[in-house]
Write a protein that binds this DNA or RNA. Structure first.
Lengths: 157, 157
DNA sequence: GGAAATTAGTTGCGTTTGCAACTATTCTTG
DNA sequence: CAAGAATAGTTGCAAACGCAACTAATTTCC
């Protein structure tokens, strides 16, 4: 029982590496963005999700799902983005409960401004170390894991 | 410029899947632990790091590095673990600035109690969807990424 | 051998998170 | 078509985090 692996022989090496790599890389990326005086990564995620969406807008719950955040956290993240002028709220015409998060032109500009710094991080820390084959294999494997975790049938990444 | 990929042709699919998979899986695992009335995952990480360490103890900064946490956050995480009786602080004899975090027997028991629930999560959400080959390839790739990010030359995972 | 720089760990403070409760609207179905 | 259930989004509050400042001990090196 000293070593978890001994019990029913499950190897957790990949999982442990997955977690640690994520933690280390995220820490580095956030630090880089901070030095460049750019907003945190989650802002990028929201801006990019909106940029890809039809009419540059998504309902709050869609946005929350898209960036994998709880509703309440997304509410407040959008508060901050709205305060910064990067996103606007628009009430939904067809559902009076609902609201859209809408990308502003300043939000689009910020997404584009953040991208080079972010892309360089991804390349330097991640892509650079992966062969095309490895990328293909990881895409397949992660896709499968993600779809299973989300009970399949979800749209984009 | 609409699509980041178009610029200097860097494919960020793997990275995006990596991030999203991490977020979704962590959310599920934390929820499972909570339902089982078990402490959060980071407690497990600390307990397990100490359990593997010689004499079940590590200096605070080693522990911080081992679980990829800032010093100040580790200080307070250990505060909580100490309050729960799972870890003790011990001042270092050879360096009067220093302190050890030491696993208590209650801490060891808790680690063992958490493991089955955690292991089941890992298997169900992660391992189950990976072939041995895929695991091997991911291990190699992640190891390489992690070592590079940490300027190589770091011990255990 | 002693001033300056470095390292270990903690703490204060403002920000962000997580959870549960809450309002308001829409859907269900008897 | 009305009562109850479900869904959308926000908010209050306590816990946790990130950063910079702080104390204390150790190392460097002139």
């Amino acid at each position: 029982m000293r070593n978890p692996k001994s019990k029913s022989t499950v190897s957790t090496t990949t999982w442990a590496l997955f977690l640690t790599t994520h933690a280390v890389l995220l820490e580095k990326i956030e630090a880089t963005l901070k030095v460049a005086e750019l907003p945190p990564l989650e802002w990028y995620d929201v801006l990019w999700a909106l940029e890809r969406a039809p009419q540059h807008r998504l309902r709050m719950h869609e946005l929350a799902h898209s960036v994998v955040l709880s509703r309440s956290n997304l509410t407040r993240l959008v508060d901050r983005l709205e305060a910064a002028g990067l996103v606007e709220r628009q009430s939904a015409a067809d559902d009076k409960r609902g609201a859209y998060g809408v990308l502003t032109s300043a939000g689009l500009a910020m997404r584009e401004k953040m991208w080079p710094a972010y892309r360089d991080c991804i390349v330097d820390l991640f892509n650079q170390h992966l062969s095309k084959d490895e990328q293909g294999i990881m895409n397949g494997a992660l896709r499968r894991i993600l779809d299973a975790a989300r009970d399949s049938a979800d749209e984009g990444i």
